[in-house]
Write a protein that binds this DNA or RNA. Sequence first.
RNA 1: CGGGGCGUGGCGCAGCUUGGUAGCGCGCUUGCUUUGGGAGCAAGAGGCCGGCGGUUCAAAUCCGCCCGCCCCGACCA
Length: 585
Amino acid sequence: MPDRDVTGACTSMAGICRLKAVMRASRLFFPTLKEDPAEAEAVSHKLMIRAGLVRQLAAGLYIYLPLGLRVVNKINRIIREEMDAIGAQELSMPVLQPAEIWQQSGRYEAIGEEMFRLKDRGGREMVLGMTHEEIVTWLAAREIRSYRDLPQVWYQLQTKLRDEARPKSGILRTREFVMKDSYSFDVDEAALEENYYLHTRAYKRIFQRAGIDFYMVESDPGMMGGATAHEFMAPSSAGEDEVALCPACGYAANVELAHSMPSQPARPAAGLEEVETPNVRSIDEVSRFLDITPDLLIKSLLVIADEGPVLAMVRGDHELQESKLRRLIGEHRPAQAEEIGRITGAEAGFIGPLGLDDIRMIADESLHGGVFAAGANKTGYHVRGIVPGTDFEAGFADIRRVREGEKCPHCDASLKIERVIEIGNIFKLGTKYSKPLGATYLDEDGKEQPIVMGSYGIGPARVAAAAVEQLADGKGIVWPLAIAPFAVHLALVQPADSQQKAVAEKLYAELMSRGVEVLLDDRSVSPGVKFAEAELLGCPLRVTVGKRTLAENAVEVQIRRGREQLSVQLPGAAGAIADLLDEIG
RNA sequence: CGGGGCGUGGCGCAGCUUGGUAGCGCGCUUGCUUUGGGAGCAAGAGGCCGGCGGUUCAAAUCCGCCCGCCCCGACCA
């Protein structure tokens, strides 16, 4: 049975009347648009505005209109049910937070401009929370004392604020958004593993129930700290991330850290040989000039890290994956032209590993065992016959970006690359927050131990947007039943016709009494408008009451997904429609 | 933050090059007609042309500064 709590359980007569009123299109606030809004690019952005689900207040700030809120509330309800099912307990923490706690964790300095900062009237430094690790750890530090208090899993659905450098794609990347965030507290890594596993299970159920496609992939823990992290990714061209997927063995990872087995290039003769290459700089130009394929070149990139200049090298046909390099050398930036000249003695386009023994050099592992050409660190010259590891010393590591078609690191299949929307993530934090914030417990031996934590997020609005992105067709949104604003869109063609009106009202009441959520379109607008808007809004079933089918004592049912139409005889129509919902749900 | 684009009735746009009383479509209001695929006819309402300053007899239009929004990139617990 579909839930009724979403619209508020009705126990009183007044409540029932109110509920009915709200479900009539003539009274419902859902301002639709015929044309795409000029500022929208992503399909979900256009459709959610056009269907009257959301309105933009300012860059990255959205108002959820009644229908949009219904969708998000349904997603939130699924999330609550599944979080409760793994023993998580809902609580609520403030959005406005003292800066001091963030100073203790070290993130006050680490995060920078993305965090909204302000002072209260007393001059105290405050922040608007971008997440709640600090606060939840503060709470745990005060209230958890013994191993007997563990494990705990706490969650909330709370607003987060981030001063995004670039809000984009409608509700996909906003400055204010609600996140389901949960936090686990355990005695040790093994116990954390259990909670981590429970979360993966809950997340899979949540996204399955919401009716969207998704992958669970390995991810870069980044600023969250900790060793292990996964992301839940919904495939969509509107996404901002890319994942590498192995169709054979199931290997799945964010390209930020995905590994692959690159093809092996030919192995030309070794032996250093300097070649004059006047004004030949780019990989393209050099490979053409020397008449060798790009995979026989070393692409040398000079960056400036905290420790000083670092030469990063990948094969000519590869690209540097910044996130991988960052894990090795920390934050860094590309060197400027002047720095390149000073450090290497050559202009950009002619730099290479030879003779740069005093700076740190990191070579992609695909360079190991090959023979390559590279810049000579002398403007106008390259060198061929270079054997990495022999002709120069470097640390070898995977710092290249995975490409579509490269071999999976675990089996022989070819990797696929897909664009995705990040809808959830899970991190093993370990003691990254519990140690600085003093969240400890006494173990069985009476010894003080840091609590071992995990952190787990879901963006409900992104789940909604992902559903729109994945299922929409040329007519509009196609909601999965579980998160649709209404299960049935009941279109009354001629409200002025007393017979049609009576049939529609009766069907409406019967469906409602079965717990089916119905939007009755009782407006005096032309049928074309009703049909077009019903398809734009995308409820799973559209039921049409009009004279055409009423002549045969039937109503017409359109299954929104696929737009198949069928005729349903009137006596027993409510039951048949409810059965149909069970089928498609 | 770097690059690009755009700000003109509620929405989508034209007008700007070449300064001279602001226009189109949709929507909205009223009336009549219509009622199974974003209806028809008629009559209406609605705009400091993003803001400020400058040039000019005269600025939506030219110039300068600022603000806002979108896109690409950088960034992104």
